[in-house]
Simulated assay, not measured.
Amino acid sequence: MSVLPLIFTAGWASGINAYAVVFLLGVFGRIGWAEDVPPGLERTDVLVAAGALFLIEAVADKVPYLDSFWDAVHTVVRPASGAVVSALIAGQDDSLPTLFAAAVGGTTALASHIVKAGTRMAINTSPEPASNIVVSTVEDLGVGAVLTLAVFFPVLAAVIAGVLLVVGLWVVYLCASRIRRYLRRRRERREARGAAVLG
């Protein structure tokens, strides 16, 4: 069976939390749950690094405004991680060209990263921090659940990831005015800091 559903799901999950994807796939491969996991992801040093970075992200992702800064930094990291993980998975299987797999994983990761970053900007227009914590926790649990499902039922997981991606893009579109408001506030704060330094 083609690994394309697993690649799509891993790409979607990478756009939300790339470190969780590397860590979970590595653990699943290590304990024998998933045959398509590349040995490189199962290495102890990779698991330790991914686990540590996941914990850092789990904290940073729940702090208002810090989460959007973290997302900006990871605009390159998440799609690149999705592409690399997908290429490594395809390298374990002859049913899919590696370059195509990398393109699918990277593009899907970029799209889900846009959803994540966009919804966070919209949420950050609200003054209370609880929504950040709730959304971040739901994202972490969702990535874990869908990625685990992908190990046992890859097609079903890919369908769920696809639906979540489409719904997320629609939500970002609906929240466009709140996102613009967040970007305007950020620009005004930056300009005020610049004026204070010059003054």
Rank of each mutant, 00 (worst) to 15 (best):
V172L: 07
P38M: 01
P38W: 00
V27T: 10
F8H: 04
I179Y: 07
G11R: 07
R30E: 15
E191V: 12
L96P: 00
R43D: 10
S177W: 11
A101F: 08
W170R: 04
S95W: 02
V37I: 13
V22A: 15
L4N: 04
A50T: 13
V104R: 02
A52V: 14
A52H: 10
F69H: 05
V171I: 11
V171E: 10
F69T: 14
I114F: 14
P38I: 00
F8C: 10
S136A: 14
D61N: 08
S81Y: 04
V63C: 09
A195D: 12
A34W: 04
F28I: 03
A150I: 07
F69A: 15
A18F: 04
V151M: 04
L88V: 08
P97N: 06
F152A: 10
V104S: 08
L169T: 03
W70F: 14
R189C: 07
I160A: 06
L24I: 06
T148K: 05
L55Q: 04
Y173A: 15
G199S: 06
G144S: 13
V138G: 04
A130E: 13
I31N: 13
L24K: 05
V104M: 07
R187G: 01
Y173P: 00
G26S: 09
R120Y: 10
V73K: 03
P97H: 05
V138E: 06
W12H: 04
K62R: 11
S136R: 08
L110R: 04
A72W: 07
A10Q: 08
G82S: 13
F100T: 13
A109P: 11
V143G: 01
V37F: 05
V22H: 01
I123Y: 00
V167P: 04
E139I: 02
A10W: 03
R189S: 08
A195L: 15
A72C: 03
A49V: 15
A34L: 07
Y173M: 10
W70I: 07
F8D: 04
T119Y: 00
G82D: 08
N132C: 13
I123C: 00
M121T: 02
V172A: 01
L4Y: 09
Y19A: 08
G142L: 14
A130G: 09
R43N: 08
